[in-house]
Design a protein around this nucleic acid. Structure first.
Lengths: 194, 194
DNA sequence: CTATGTGAATTTATTCACAGCA
DNA sequence: TGCTGTGAATAAATTCACATAG
């Protein structure tokens, strides 16, 4: 689903109004009936003979993914990766706003990066009051679990974890881990040996 | 498969010798017979009554994934994200070595980051001679396609793309795209609305 | 008695094929 | 005619269940 959304937002940027399942399939390298089936799961929106209205469909998918309201997210760890995330264009188009940043390094605390002031990690508990329930972990590996624990205590419900470590959280909290090295590890499989 | 490998490397670090499919299943949150089936695809290594030898199994999976030889990879784009990747621990344990870095910014060219000298992107063609056929794209969105084209010309066979853009390459080249915002977009689905 | 390896059963996902609408 | 929406057919993945090995 997020893949469809990305494709639709891309098409929308190009100024297109509508697209057929076939064309979208070609664009995203998937099967056309797959797309029609997936879309039909949440009720049908296409116009036979024409295709799908891009804007309407994007709005619908956002609703399904719970992306229809703007979300605030917190970033923990303002190192190279964290700074890159703060500067990352694209969060916005999915309705995310990195509204707070935290670090443990006194040299960083107080500075502003991309207009977001860096706060002391000890202040993580304020997230509950500020109604921020999404967080991104971009701290060194050894601090990841501890950070996750603090986030859970602060009432965070969803975590995007960039550390190459399995973090353990109560099962009511959803974690998505991106292990960058692991992704790279998938590549050689498709390559000739040597 | 990469997930299994990560789990096994983790266990290996802990000093464990062997593990049963059941225990590994619990650790990775998958089904136990799934694991046995997957492992049996490339011939069986487990010892009934004991389990699988962790080191042996890890070595085997590395062989399957073509990870048994050290691989050199090139990084293009030494911004915040690129710098983070250069410092990323974990590539090593999958047998990767970021052996070259490129950027277009004259202020960065010539500097060393994490012992890797930053070269001019115009020098990308040297990758063929240096037998580097994996690359990581960490450039701004608008430069992504152009970078991919240069990499393909330089004989690169696998690309890890961090730009939120679909890059188009000949089908002999394998691309894995990590769209960070899209990953984050998956989280709200599991959250209560609001 | 514990844990593997694997055929059989089941569930899930994908693809096909076509009736019906604009 | 072009494309959707969907039942039917096919393929793939997952899980079960158990004979067998240490």
């Amino acid at each position: 689903m997020p893949v469809y959304l990305r494709g639709l937002l891309f098409l929308s940027e190009q100024g297109r109004q509508s697209i057929s399942s076939r064309n979208l399939a070609d664009l995203l390298c998937v099967n056309a009936s797959q797309i029609r089936k997936d879309f039909s799961y949440f009720g049908a929106f296409g116009t036979p003979g024409v295709g799908y209205n891009i804007k309407k469909l994007a709005r619908q998918i956002k609703k399904i993914l719970n992306l229809s309201v703007f979300r605030k997210a917190a970033l923990v760890g303002v190192g190279n990766l964290g700074s890159a995330l703060l500067a990352y264009p694209g969060f916005g188009m999915y309705g995310f706003d990195i509204a707070a940043a935290f670090d443990s390094d006194p040299k960083k605390i107080g500075r502003k990066i991309n207009d977001v002031p860096v706060e002391n990690v000890s202040n993580l508990r304020s997230l509950r009051r500020r109604k921020i329930n999404l967080a991104i972990i971009a701290v060194p590996r050894d601090a990841a679990q501890q950070t996750a624990d603090s986030l859970v205590k602060a009432g965070v419900k969803g975590i995007l974890n960039f550390s190459p470590l399995r973090v353990t959280v109560p099962k009511r909290v959803k974690v998505i881990t991106i292990d960058i090295a692991m992704e790279l590890a998938r590549l050689p499989y498709y390559l000739p040996t040597g």
